[in-house]
Design a protein around this nucleic acid. Structure first.
Length: 823
RNA sequence: GCCGGAGUGGCGGAACAGGCAGACGCAAGGGACUUAAAAUCCCUCGGUCCAAAAGACCGUACCGGUUCGAUUCCGGUCUCCGGCACCA
């Protein structure tokens, strides 16, 4: 036969799979498995990161089908979003045209990679058939009180001309373009994700199949902290100031209060007083600073006295109220109590403004005095100067004081979270319109379900900057109120694209359903996703939103699942020369060029072999050569014997030692590959054990030439080809055919390990003296400890080393080692 | 600062339950085939000492502990990566 030529065999088998519908989901098997790779944004070109994530998913999908599972392995497009709109502005193409052209191009590349997707379930979030249900989802949340509109200070990206959710601001910049985010006060739609905070936190415990770091990232993001809220009465006024503290045990040590510049009471407290001008100037200066500067620990803490005092509820003390630049309105209550003796920040602030210190917590074996403190004592301890709580430990006092506050209506135990509601309005065209109308008489009216989808008008004008084209489209803007029939104005904002992607894995289970987003039976048959695979950049954003939406579906009775993704694999990045591939660095290698030069099978094999899936890999052109070399080696091996195996065998002879050794090598590899894929996702070591088996086959080939044991060789080569098929699906088909089979290798059952083939008559054991390896012995398998000891002690090496010493102890591990302890 | 993860040859990595550290691959060196090259096949390949072999010693970031035995378990230190952070 000819040389291995992937450019011929790969298209051949891709056509074969398509013509025979080989990748369609087989729904009727006993066990199901839903393997899902995060769907891509249709940028137009696949990059190496895509190739990696699809290769991982495809090995798993193909392997599990062979293992007898019904496997759902779908693909789709996260197709709404800004790049399409920017392309429209730049090149005067409609976002839809641009997007669908990109989808076609990328789908072609995915097919060229030989990924086994069930294309009948393909979804694109920009299809009206899909976004109709995204709008339906909005209405579901609206009905359940989970979608609401409010005036709020929001993040604004001036470059993208739209608002952003908190999760979409990274280091003060826009997640998409990096432009520094500014603040705007706008009326916007929010999803009440904070109703689910505790469940989102608590259910992280269910996700033992997720990487620890991703769970930690979500936990940090949710940011639970437990403490108490305390209400301080303002002296001479009716107002109260609430503060949140995690240390209610230090309440008797409060010597001042600090308000955020944006706090609603600042103006009232200073109005008409002689301090008004000074405070106003301070507030304005503070507000001018951007978020990054304000949040920086480098910033100098500054404050100004308001002239007002409030009363500490527990002891009636008057404490001054200040405004400070380090107190944030967005966390807690926007006001903090100052306990300089027991908080380092407060300590520094108090020293600067000569505010008094009072020690209320001491370590058990030491006395502290306010005058001697060089820094705050922040650890737990025993209470002093705290009335009836003196002598209690911090831990006990936290509970007692919270109860005492509650009993007197001065405050209560409280839990605060960092997580904020999800801002979902976007002032852009290329997204799902928010299905809401504003009627002159009826106010805010949701679009009735039967009127969905609210279609995006096609005849819009795209231009840089300014507002969304929808807001300028007269035909879209004006509508009839479904309640009173009067004039109504449409909401012109579209939904955050993260809503589209927060439920797509449900849609795959019933992608063609015209009456529902998905039938409950179909959803429950597949969701939760058994294995989800994607980049770590979604650790918070997409994964948190999806968890939230799944819980909403669950509460509304649409799914039995409480979590969407049972197991998560956060695959590492593909770098080159130690840096992320990028055009500007000129270190980009595209899947296309690899397919063209070596074939998809080589590319897939290399990217899986180079590193474990969760680690970053450094792309190596030499390494790819190595993988290509290996596939050619397999090709030649099968080619060498395929014809020989077709010839009739006159009389089958018994297998000799060499035959059995090869059979053992192949079954050993099979066992390892099975475990590596199934239990550990160690594709790299799975591939290396296939390589070892092939090396053994080459040794055998050199020894035996044509004098092979036919039955054994057929078995060995078939196991090899089937084992390789999930990794190199085209080569697998071609070699399977070459071995005389008519059906697809991917329809084969995964071979079973023959444990008798693994048995060996003799093993090499290690003989150690005082833990150091001194000798090796070949002994029959299964020798008892006693027999091993005897053999080891009889070894000449041992005799020599132990000559003038006394044997203290002998440890024997059957089939492994003997350790002789001498003195 | 708090939380999490990781440190193994020239390189990517392996050692799955505490039992021969470095599987497999890349790179490097040598050999076979060839007029030659490519392709292919075979061999060597952690360090030091030794001409070499045999052998000895050292070696999994560092220091210590547990153990007959530690890359693996425990305590401490350092470095790198990631998340959160004037978070009250």
């Amino acid at each position: 036969m000819a040389e291995y030529n992937p450019s011929v065999i790969e298209p051949k088998w891709q056509r074969f799979w398509e013509e025979n519908d080989l990748n369609q989901t087989e729904e009727d098997r006993q066990k199901k498995y839903y393997v899902l790779e995060m769907f891509p944004y249709p940028s137009g070109r696949l990059h190496m990161g895509h190739m990696r994530v699809y290769s991982i998913g495809d090995v798993l999908a193909r392997f599990l089908r062979m293992r007898g599972f019904s496997v759902l392995h779908p693909m789709g497009w996260d197709a709404f979003g800004l790049p399409a709109e920017n392309a429209a502005i730049k090149n005067q193409v409609h976002p839809a045209a641009w997007t669908y052209a990109n989808i076609e191009a990328m789908k072609k590349q995915q097919k060229a990679l030989g990924i086994s997707y069930d294309w009948q379930r393909e979804v694109a979030t920009c299809d009206p058939d899909y976004y109709k249900w995204t709008q339906w989802l909005f209405l579901l949340l609206y009905k359940r009180g989970l979608a609401y509109k409010k005036q709020a200070g929001v993040n604004w990206c001036p470059n993208c001309s739209t608002v952003l959710a908190n999760e979409q601001v990274e280091d003060g910049g826009c997640w998409r373009c990096g432009t520094e985010v500014t603040h705007k006060d706008l009326e916007q739609w929010f999803f009440r994700i904070t109703d689910y905070t505790e469940r989102l936190l608590e259910d992280l415990k269910l996700l033992s199949g997720w990487p620890e770091r991703v769970r930690m990232m979500q936990e940090n993001w949710i940011g639970k902290s437990e403490g108490a809220e305390v209400r301080f009465k303002v002296k001479g006024r009716e107002d109260e100031i609430s503060v949140f503290t995690t240390r209610p045990d230090t309440l008797y040590g409060v010597t001042y209060l600090v308000l955020a510049a944006e706090h609603s009471l600042v103006e009232a407290l200073t109005a008409g007083s002689e301090r008004q001008a000074e405070v106003q100037a301070f507030v304005e200066n503070t507000k001018k600073l951007n978020d990054i500067a304000r949040a920086s620990t480098e910033m100098v803490k500054e404050g100004v006295f308001t002239g007002a005092y409030c009363l500490n509820p527990v002891n009636g003390e008057e404490v001054p109220i200040l405004v400070g630049n380090y107190v944030l309105m967005g966390y807690g209550t926007g006001a903090v109590m100052g306990v300089p003796a027991h908080d380092q920040r407060d300590f520094e602030f108090a020293k600067k403004y000569q505010l008094p210190l009072r020690v209320v917590i001491t370590p058990e074996d030491q006395e502290l005095s306010a005058a001697d403190l060089k820094e705050a004592y922040v650890d737990a301890g025993v209470l002093i100067n705290s009335a009836q709580f003196n002598g209690k430990t911090s831990e006990a006092a936290q509970k007692k004081i919270a109860a005492y506050l509650a009993a007197n209506n001065w405050g209560e135990a409280k839990v605060t979270y960092r997580l904020r509601d999800w801002l979902i309005s976007r002032q852009r065209y290329w997204g799902a319109p928010i299905p809401v109308l504003y009627c002159e008489h009826c106010g805010t009216v949701p679009v009735p379900e039967e009127q969905l989808p609210v279609l995006l008008p096609e005849d819009v004008v795209f231009k840089a900057g300014g507002q969304s084209p929808l807001a300028e489209h007269e035909g879209f803007l004006h509508a009839t109120c479904p309640q009173c029939g009067g004039q109504a104005r449409r909401e012109t904002d579209t939904m955050d694209t993260f809503i589209d992607s927060s439920w797509y894995y449900f849609r795959y289970t019933d992608a063609q359903n015209e009456n529902l987003p998905f039938a409950k039976g179909q959803g429950d048959a597949w969701v939760p996703v058994d294995q989800y695979i994607g980049g770590i950049e979604h650790a918070i954003l997409h994964l948190l939103y999806s968890r939230f939406i799944t819980k909403v579906f669950h509460d509304a009775g649409y799914t039995a699942a409480v979590e969407p993704f049972t197991r998560l694999l956060a695959q590492g990045m593909v770098n080159k020369d130690g840096a992320k591939m990028s055009k500007s660095k000129g270190n980009v290698v595209s899947p296309d060029e690899i397919i063209e030069k070596y074939g998809a099978d080589t590319g897939r094999l290399f990217i899986l072999f180079a590193a474990p899936p969760e680690k970053d890999v450094d792309w190596s052109d030499r390494g790819v050569e190595g993988s290509y070399r290996f596939l050619k080696r397999v090709w030649r091996l099968v080619d060498r014997y395929a014809d020989v195996l077709q010839q009739p065998v006159e009389q089958q002879v018994a297998a000799d030692d060499a035959d059995q050794a090869l059979r053992r090598a192949m079954h050993t590899a099979l066992k390892k590959v099975t475990e590596d894929i199934e239990e550990r996702f160690n594709f790299n070591t799975a591939i290396s054990s296939i390589m070892e088996a092939v090396n053994s086959a080459y040794s055998y080939m050199h020894e035996k030439e044509d004098h092979i044991h036919h039955g054994m060789m057929r078995e060995v080569l078939e196991i090899l080809v089937v084992m390789l098929a999930p990794f190199a699906p085209h080569l697998g088909e071609e070699l399977w055919e070459r071995l005389g089979h008519q059906t697809s290798v991917h329809l084969q059952s995964w071979p079973t390990v023959d444990s008798t083939a693994l048995q060996v008559a003799e093993v090499e054991i290690v003989v150690q003296v005082n833990g150091k390896v001194r000798d090796h012995l070949v002994v029959p398998t299964g020798l008892t400890r006693e027999a091993l000891q005897e053999l080891a002690l009889a070894s000449a090496k041992v005799a020599q080393l132990a000559a003038d010493k006394q044997v203290v102890k002998v440890i024997a591990v059957p089939d492994k080692l003997v350790n002789i302890v001498v003195r």
